[in-house]
Amino acid sequence: MDLGFERILQVKIPVTDLQRSVNWYRRVFGLRLAWEFADPSGVTGAVLTDDAERFLIGLRRLDTVSGEPSLAGFDVVSLGVPSVDVLKELVERFDELGVEHDPLFDRGPGGGVQLDVPDPDGTVIRILSPFGEHAPFSGVEFGPDRAPTFYSTPRLQLD
């Protein structure tokens, strides 16, 4: 059923130090500050975007977010790039900037290649190359050595 959604427009990430995170996202991903949100306690949030405004990354001070979520080590968002060559260029850029990142990871048949970059709070920003041909469903199981194996029948019970 097509509900008319075109894309995910914004992802909002809780951060411990808003100023540090705004500067990091601007420097690492070349984003610009589009909006700030403030209350009497000061600036509590910001929205960053690319120059073409294709996507938005919202940052909120953790002390203003209910539930105090922790996303350290979790890939809350994936950004798409047009090719593996662009991923390789990003690795070079991150190395030049001294930005921590994982090595390129081949996700297997039809899964593309990924590059993970943790932000200052440890939240992982995943960058993906285009996916290749793949079946309508693919399961991936990671073994103790984190090596992926693939399966074709869902394990979840679908209604």
Rank of each mutant, 00 (worst) to 15 (best):
F5R: 03
F5N: 07
N23F: 13
F74R: 09
R146S: 15
D85S: 07
R155M: 02
L18W: 02
P120I: 14
V65C: 03
T16W: 00
R32E: 15
G42A: 10
V84S: 03
A46Q: 05
G110L: 06
G112H: 12
P148I: 12
F94Q: 05
P69D: 07
T44F: 03
R126K: 09
T153W: 01
D116T: 11
R155N: 00
L97S: 09
R61P: 00
F94M: 10
M1I: 03
S138W: 09
V28K: 01
D95Q: 10
Y151G: 06
D51M: 14
V11L: 02
E6S: 11
Q114C: 13
D145Y: 14
L59V: 02
K12L: 01
F142S: 13
L9Q: 08
S129Y: 11
L128M: 10
V15Y: 03
G112C: 12
V28N: 01
A52D: 12
R54Q: 14
L18K: 02
P120Y: 11
M1L: 03
R32N: 15
G98R: 03
L9W: 07
R32M: 14
R107F: 00
L33Y: 05
L31V: 13
S70I: 08
A147E: 14
D95R: 09
L158F: 04
L62I: 12
F29C: 10
P14L: 07
E141F: 06
R20D: 11
K88W: 05
P14H: 08
S152R: 12
S41A: 08
M1P: 00
F142T: 13
L71A: 13
S138F: 07
D17R: 01
L104K: 13
T149E: 05
Q10F: 02
F5D: 04
E68V: 15
D75I: 15
P14S: 09
Q19T: 15
V65E: 02
P14M: 11
L59T: 03
S152Y: 10
T153E: 07
Q114P: 02
S41C: 06
V84F: 07
P136E: 10
V124P: 05
F94L: 10
R32Q: 12
F150E: 08
T123Q: 03
P120A: 10
E53Y: 06
I57M: 06
P136S: 12
F29Y: 08
R27H: 07
V140M: 12
L90N: 13
I127L: 05
F55M: 10
F5S: 08
V81Y: 00
A135W: 09
P130E: 08
F131P: 09
R54K: 11
L56N: 05
R26P: 05
R60T: 13
T149D: 06
T123D: 04
T44Y: 00
W24I: 02
T44W: 01
E133P: 01
A46M: 05
L48W: 06
L156C: 01
G67T: 10
